[in-house]
Every structure is written in structure tokens, then in C-alpha cells.
């Protein structure tokens, strides 16, 4: 097989993301979550690194709390953003591989055209959480910030149901 296992090559990885970020809240079921585990809270250092940009994102979490992030760097995914800032409902278990649907968001209608449709691989993953999938569903790990998305608004989807 040709093609290098890209993830294992360190060259070209963006310094600053590869730090101890950690999923905080765990969605238990609709509108609920388990306690934040002690000892693995937000890495404060990380908050000031990797997010030195000036793009604005509004993210409403599964508890209905609206988070404003005015300092997002280009290239950061919504999963990385939500996970590093402890946004309830963004877990990113698979690490951004489009393989677990634990960073599912609904894109605000005004932004849908700019963000665009999921590709087939992403759609297949969203189909696994069909009960909470909507027309504006995307996986946060597949939305990377850029200048055109400055001001983006999303709402974190609840976990697939019990």
C-alpha cells in the first residue's frame, strides 16, 4: 500500500494543538451529563495556546449555555475548540477522525451555505445518530475555521438517545 500514515509523521503537524486537551463533560442522555471528573479539568496553558486568532464562534452547549469565543485561530476545528474549552456535549472521542459522532453540532441556518454539506464519509457517521440528526447536522471535527466562517454560530447536538 502506498501512502504514508500521515498522522504518525510529526513534520507538518501544527504545533500547539498537540497538547493535553481533554474531554470534560460526558453526555449521559438528552440534556444531562455526568460530573466533570476531578483532576482532568481544562488545561489552562492550552487555553492561551492554539487559540490566538481573532475569528469569532458562538457555540451553544447541550445545557443551553451560550459560549462566545472571539479568539479562534484559522484551521482550528469546532471539535478542538469545544473540547479544549469544556463545551458540554463536545467530546471528540476519536480525536477528529470523523469516526465517532461525539462532536455533533447543528449549524445555524444562516451559516449553512457557507459551511456546506457533509461528505459521504461524514454522512455515514451522522447516520449512526439518526435520532438526533437534522438537516443542518455536521461533525465539529470536520469544520475547520477560516475567514469565511468568522461569526459562525452552532448548537451542540444532544447525544443519541436511550
Amino acid at each position: 500500500m502506498t501512502g504514508r500514515a500521515e498522522g504518525l509523521s510529526c513534520t507538518g503537524r501544527r504545533a500547539g494543538y498537540v497538547v493535553a486537551v481533554f474531554p470534560l463533560g460526558q453526555v449521559a442522555r438528552h440534556g444531562e451529563r455526568f460530573a466533570r471528573p476531578p483532576g482532568c479539568g481544562i488545561n489552562q496553558e492550552n487555553q492561551s495556546r492554539g487559540f490566538m486568532g481573532n475569528l469569532h464562534v458562538t457555540m451553544t452547549d447541550i445545557d443551553g449555555v451560550k459560549h462566545e469565543f472571539p479568539d479562534v485561530e484559522e484551521g482550528v476545528s469546532l471539535m478542538e475548540l469545544g473540547r479544549s474549552r469544556g463545551v458540554a456535549g463536545i467530546m471528540g472521542d476519536c480525536g477528529g477522525g470523523c469516526a465517532c459522532a461525539t462532536c455533533h453540532v447543528y449549524v445555524a441556518a444562516d451559516w449553512w451555505n457557507e459551511v456546506g454539506e457533509p461528505d459521504d464519509v461524514e454522512f455515514a457517521m451522522l447516520d449512526m445518530v439518526a435520532d438526533v440528526m437534522k438537516d443542518t447536522s455536521r461533525l465539529g471535527c470536520q469544520i475547520k475555521m477560516n475567514g469565511n466562517l468568522d461569526g459562525l454560530e452552532v448548537t451542540v447536538a444532544p447525544a443519541s438517545g436511550y
Binding site: 500514515a5 500521515e6 498522522g7 498537540v18 493535553a20 482532568c40 488545561n43 480525536g95 459521504d120 457517521m125
Partner: peptide, 21 residues
């Protein structure tokens, strides 16, 4: 964590759904 987080980060792009596709 935090050791696991660093090791995991190293491995997790190797088999993303897109690369597997």
C-alpha cells in the same frame, strides 16, 4: 491522562475515516 493524551494524539490521525476510505 495526561501521558495518554499525548500518545493518543500521535496515533489518532493514522486511521481516520477519510484515510480508511
Amino acid at each position: 491522562p495526561p501521558y495518554h493524551t499525548r500518545i493518543r494524539k500521535l496515533m489518532e490521525q493514522a486511521f481516520t475515516a477519510h484515510r480508511v476510505k
